[in-house]
Design a protein around this nucleic acid. Structure first.
Length: 720
DNA sequence: GAGCACTGC
């Protein structure tokens, strides 16, 4: 029996790009069209089209609870388009928490509508905009829509905004929900004003400053003249409990759509397992020896666990009786280079069972075909943030009930499956219902800065679905003040605060760019900020650790990690320029860069990302009128600039070789990944403070302690 | 001597 997932498969995507003419092709494309029509008709949501459109018409805000496979993401926007919600050139916007989802869904819907991508149906994500003036159904990431609100506070081009996967509660989703609630209110107010004004046929309606403040929206005046029709909101969630969303939107109506998911048998252990890695290993082989065909997906918490279980599986597989089915172990986690990530999609060779060892990446981000068995130890590595110390930590915690459900669902995509929970059923009852929203677990500086830029001055009074603690907000306000982004009365400062809000970066990095303009090393800082904004540039595979280390030496700077990163970026640029000069095709240029990455143990995905960030940010700073100059070999100048920018993150060496972070008085160690791990200079500036097994600082540069009072007197003079 | 997962006009 076929299963039609909401997101198109890789095979479907391939067919998109291969579209050509010709008789055979025409026949194929006709068959494909029929298949699509058939698939659409058989989706659970197809039966309730009229009812859904009616509910949207009747309710300003509608909550849709849709299970996996209901087809809500691809179908609802088309229903609403057909119901006339794009009249007058208005757009239906659908937000997704992830880029790939926005792209693949948009491609699928364009195909279903039989249009080229970027025409009626398009998508917009960071670095990629596949939309045009004719786009009416627009898929995008939620973060992008928040950014868009900075330019158009009323989101005036949208008639409807659909927030998909709202149950994931990313920071962006939560900020967006608050923002949309404001915009919806403001737009219905503006409509009322407009209507009463039309009746009175007098002058322009006037809205007082007080009202602007009440609505917490800047630029309301700008919208007075343009007729802003009311904004419809649809919040889509996969969690079974819609109450939270409904309450937040003033008792909004919630409807439920059935999904299409095969039955998954849930099995629990009798007792708690003290060693979940060993339990995972035992279960893998129990399934392998006793279970029917089908691949196994085991959820582990990180790279280290995955690598160690991988070794253990290999060892034990050797002891399997002669002639029994073999095991193919495939690891997958975010930091793994993309070529190796792709291995999870390859089917196992004949006579093999595939065992996938994954982090949370396989919970929502990747859908791996062929999974029949899921092993779930019930744990996850999660980020938490201490607002008092500014310390981030990665801790292993129990998952939520919602996560357990999501994980087990991975076994029922293509047929009935089994999920082995490595804990007793009584433990399941003790799990929290859903994961704590990210907004309660992260540094809020960026959120606060963006809200300020949107004209919302009272952050503590802002109507978040779940309010972050007062302390968290106050700390962020303090940090932004220290960076000069806020005035004495906590308003956004001009130009520094405004410029910082415009840059899609951590506020600290935005400030560093502004500083670098004064220090005449903006060229270097652009590179550093881009490199610091991405994950793990260096790749250290366990089996080639020594080679990888030797390779990093060629980029190493004794001044620290920042200049080492600078050297890597320049090395890559040099490689690109060389192959460009050789006048070869663009594809070959890319290939030679990938080869360079492989040879130098650089993660090519991270480097590509850094290059994208670099070019985007460079565009922004140029627009802002900052001068991009280089300090050349005067790297002291650059290190002084790092000091002036990151003065809040300085640490001094203690007699025992550990460090004391000056601002928070915490005892920290240099992270072993730093090039200064052995050198241990007297005074350093760092970018990250992370607690794992110990308190670690990462991404550091050696500085002269005397630079601190000289370059950040506002902080270090007051400290004395 | 060590790196959950996402994301940004």
């Amino acid at each position: 029996m076929p299963l039609f997932p909401e997101v198109v498969s890789a095979e479907t995507r391939k067919k998109d790009s291969n579209f050509t003419h010709g008789d055979h092709r025409t026949q194929q494309s006709l068959a494909r069209k029929q298949l699509i029509a058939q698939q659409r008709k058989s989706l659970p949501i197809a039966a309730v089209e009229k009812r859904l459109v009616d509910e949207v018409r009747k309710n300003d805000t509608l909550i849709i609870v849709g299970e996996t496979g209901s087809g809500k993401t691809t179908q609802l926007p088309q229903f609403l388009f057909n119901a006339g919600y794009c009249a007058d050139g208005k757009v239906i916007g659908i937000t997704q928490p992830r880029r790939v989802a926005a792209v693949t869904v948009a491609k699928r819907v364009a195909e279903e509508c039989n249009v080229n991508l970027g025409q009626k149906v398009g998508y917009s994500i960071r670095f990629e905009d596949e939309t045009s003036s004719t786009t009416r159904i627009k898929y995008m990431t939620d973060g992008l829509l928040v950014r868009e609100a900075l330019l158009d506070p009323f989101l005036s081009r949208y008639s409807i905004i659909i927030v998909d996967e709202a149950h994931e509660r990313t920071v962006h989703t939560d900020v967006l929900l608050g923002l949309l609630k404001n915009v919806q209110h403001a737009r219905s107010q503006s409509m009322l004003k407009q209507q009463s004004f039309d009746r009175l046929n007098g002058k322009n309606p006037v809205i007082s400053d007080k009202e602007v403040k009440n609505q917490g929206i800047s630029g309301l005046k700008a919208c007075q003249h343009a007729k802003c029709a009311p904004l419809k909101l649809v919040i889509m969630s996969a969690s079974l409990d819609a109450r939270g969303f409904s309450e937040y939107f003033g008792g909004a109506k919630a409807v439920h759509i059935q999904g299409r998911q095969y039955l998954v048998d849930i099995l629990y252990t009798y007792h708690s397992e003290p060693d979940y890695l060993d339990a995972t290993l035992i279960t893998i082989f129990q399934i392998h020896l006793e279970g029917g065909p089908g691949d196994i997906l085991a959820f582990l918490t990180g790279q280290e666990e995955i690598e160690s279980v991988e070794r253990l599986v290999h060892e034990r597989a050797r002891q399997l009786p002669e002639g029994s089915q073999k095991v193919l172990v495939v690891p997958i986690y975010s930091a793994l280079p993309s070529e190796q990530q792709m291995n999870v999609f390859k089917p196992a060779p004949p006579g093999h069972r595939k065992v996938i060892l994954a982090t949370n990446i396989a919970e929502t981000s990747l859908t791996i075909p062929g999974i029949k068995y899921v092993i779930d130890p019930g744990l996850v590595k999660a980020r938490s943030y201490n607002h008092v110390t500014g310390m981030e930590s990665l801790i292993i915690i129990p998952i939520s009930k919602a996560q357990a459900l999501q994980r087990s669902g991975r076994a029922g995509r293509e047929g009935p499956g089994k999920c082995f929970r490595l804990y007793p059923e009584s433990e399941f009852g003790k799990l929290i219902d859903s994961t704590v929203p990210e907004i309660k677990r992260c540094n809020l500086s960026n959120v606060v800065l963006q809200l300020k830029a949107l004209g919302i001055d009272d952050i503590i009074g802002f109507d978040f679905m779940e309010k972050p603690s007062r302390m968290a907000i106050v700390k962020s306000l303090e940090q932004l003040s220290l960076l000069g982004a806020l005035t004495d009365d906590y308003k956004l400062s001009d130009p520094v605060g405004l410029q910082m809000a415009r840059l899609p970066l951590d506020p600290l990095y935005s400030k560093a760019l502004i500083m670098a303009s004064d220090f005449k090393c903006l060229e270097e800082m652009l590179i550093i900020v881009a490199m610091l904004s991405v994950e793990s540039i260096f790749y250290f595979p366990r089996e080639k650790l020594e080679e990888a280390r030797a390779s990093r030496k060629s980029f190493l700077s004794s001044e620290g990690d920042h200049i080492t990163l600078l050297n890597v970026y320049r090395g890559a640029t040099e490689c690109l320029e060389k192959s460009k000069a050789a006048n070869i095709k663009e594809k070959t240029v890319e290939k030679s860069l990938n080869k360079w990455c492989r040879e130098n143990f650089i993660n090519n995905r991270s480097l590509k990302h850094a290059r994208d960030v670099h070019s985007q940010i460079k565009g922004h700073v140029q627009q802002m009128g900052l001068v991009i100059s280089s300090c050349g070999d005067e790297l002291v100048q650059f290190r002084r600039c790092l000091t002036a920018s990151f003065f809040l993150n300085a640490a001094l060496k203690e007699p025992d070789g550990s460090y004391r972070a000056i601002a928070s008085s915490q005892n920290v160690q240099i992270h072993p990944s730093s090039v200064l791990f052995r050198t241990k200079p007297d005074c350093i500036i760092f970018n990250e403070l992370v607690r794992t097994n110990q308190n670690y600082v990462r991404n550091l540069t050696r500085i002269d302690p005397l630079w601190l009072p000289e370059l950040a007197p506002q902080y270090y003079e007051a400290q004395k």
